[in-house]
């Protein structure tokens, strides 16, 4: 467990939690970025490509449209995750005797909410990139490449970080990636949870705005 978490505080916080909870949390955190890219990553490119955006942006600003799309997708993903948490609880209750306690249900919902927060920067990244193209499939591919790049960069940063020299600064670069704040969402105390959530949401908006900056001046 210590090797998996690489973080003593997280290890302390998750010790004693129900295995169903932890397995669900691990799956949710691992697959949510991919789910987000596959489900929502092409939304903006799709509308630019089909031309349906043209019926909207003479009625409202491009910024409102982009942010509206983003917020809509954030809530769609949130709903999907809460349903997945409830489903995992239902499976545990049916298949594992004595697992269907109300506490477990609440904890599963809590993990869904944490995974939801974790999905926001990936959603911002995918939707930000989606502003750059008219092709739905190209947007999906760009999203998958981007999250893969995020994972690989996070691993490289962890691997090459040392206590001295220029490599000591690598974790700062990691702060620009969602993985740099993931462990805060595994904590129990409110302070790291709130800080991690706020940072991840901000990161999501920053990624989105970077893509929007291109869209703002492009022809549609």
């Amino acid at each position: 467990m210590k090797r998996m978490t690489q973080n003593d505080l997280v290890l302390r916080d998750i010790t004693g939690k129900h295995p169903v909870e932890l397995i669900y949390a691990w799956f949710a955190f691992f697959y949510t970025p991919l789910l987000v890219v596959l489900v929502a990553g092409n939304r903006i490119a799709e509308e630019i490509g089909s031309g349906s955006v043209r019926y909207v942006i003479f009625r409202t600003s491009r910024a409102s449209w982009s942010i509206g799309k983003f917020i809509g997708q954030v809530f769609m993903i949130g709903l999907a995750l809460i349903l997945s948490g409830a489903s995992a609880y239902a499976v545990a209750k049916i298949r594992l005797a004595g697992s269907g306690t109300p506490d477990l249900f609440l904890n599963m919902v809590q993990w869904s909410l944490r995974a939801w927060i974790y999905s926001i920067p990936y959603l911002g990244l995918a939707m930000g990139l989606s502003h750059l193209t008219r092709s739905s499939s190209k947007a999906t591919v760009m999203g998958i490449l981007a999250i893969t790049a995020c994972f690989v960069l996070s691993i490289l940063i962890r691997h090459f970080t040392t206590d001295t020299g220029w490599r000591a600064y690598l974790p700062h670069l990691g702060q620009l990636l969602p993985d740099g704040h993931k462990m805060l969402l595994w904590r129990n105390a409110p302070a790291p949870l709130i800080a991690g959530s706020a940072t991840l949401i901000t990161l999501g908006f920053c990624y989105l705005v970077t893509g929007y900056a291109f869209f703002r001046t492009r022809d549609v």
Binding site: S50, R54, Y55, I57, F58, R59, T60
Partner: peptide, 21 residues
């Protein structure tokens, strides 16, 4: 020039080759 804050609801367009959702 066109500004959605000023012209929203005052100007509309039927664009060519644009699908509705």
């Amino acid at each position: 020039p066109f500004d959605p804050a000023v012209h929203s609801g005052r100007i509309t367009l039927l664009p060519q080759d644009s699908e509705l959702p």
